[in-house]
């Protein structure tokens, strides 16, 4: 009797307990790496943005490793659900969960197109997944009236109001989204590079 238990990618949706445990482990690794807890501490808007950039890039490392360790349809979706649910538990807005899951479905579709093997598509998938960070600030945009109205606003003069209006405009949101995507690409490439440089040689990937 010979058993060869070397893993192959599986495209069916039913996951083994082993896969689910791995997803949980990598979700924890991802969260610890991106250190979202720091990002939410709001030292100031600028510091938050810088730390988010670092987070998105660094998060590519556990994510790419994750893609080599679990190869199973639905993995990114489950990953996204629990990552964003954890964020919800520590106080992030509920809309971020919705956005995160939608993005994960797109990422999942990309990976599926590459049969969970394409390196290029995995980088793009990470970049798409990373756009969930925008969800943290989404309420400022869709509830912008709340932030821009108020009696003192009326007394401030047109120029002032225009400046703030521009700050919370859809254009800024789009730019923010696009930049999370771009930094996601950098993170994905870094993750791939470290896979080759370290994790494969170490027998981890």
């Amino acid at each position: 009797m010979t058993i060869d238990s070397t893993a192959q990618p599986r495209l069916d949706v039913k996951m083994s307990p082993r896969d689910l445990i791995n997803i949980g482990i990598f979700a924890a690794l991802y969260l610890a790496t991106v250190g979202v807890l720091n990002a939410l501490e709001f030292i100031g808007p600028l510091a938050t943005l810088v730390s988010i950039v670092v987070s998105i890039i660094a998060g590519g490392v556990p994510f790419m490793l994750f893609l080599t360790r679990v190869k199973h349809a639905g993995m990114v979706t489950v990953f996204a659900v629990i990552v964003n649910a954890f964020m919800l538990l520590i106080g992030s807005p509920a809309i971020a969960l919705v956005l995160g899951v939608l993005l994960a479905l797109v990422a999942e579709a990309l990976l599926w197109l590459g049969r969970y093997r394409s390196r290029k598509l995995s980088v793009v998938a990470y970049a798409v997944f990373s756009m969930w960070f925008a969800g943290l600030f989404l309420p400022m945009f869709y509830a912008r009236e709340d932030y821009l109205s108020g009696e003192y606003m009326q007394s401030m003069g047109q120029e002032y109001r225009d400046a703030l209006d521009a700050f919370l405009s859809p254009g800024v949101l789009a730019a923010f989204d696009l930049s999370t995507f771009l930094f996601g690409l950098i993170g994905g490439v870094l993750g791939l590079r470290l896979l080759d440089k370290h994790f494969r040689k170490a027998g981890i990937a």
């Binding site: 009797m1 010979t2 058993i3 060869d4 238990s5 070397t6 893993a7 082993r18």
Partner: peptide
């Protein structure tokens, strides 16, 4: 062989 991957022969 169910957790660690590799090649198993024997019973």
């Amino acid at each position: 062989p169910l957790f660690h991957e590799g090649k198993l022969e024997g019973e």
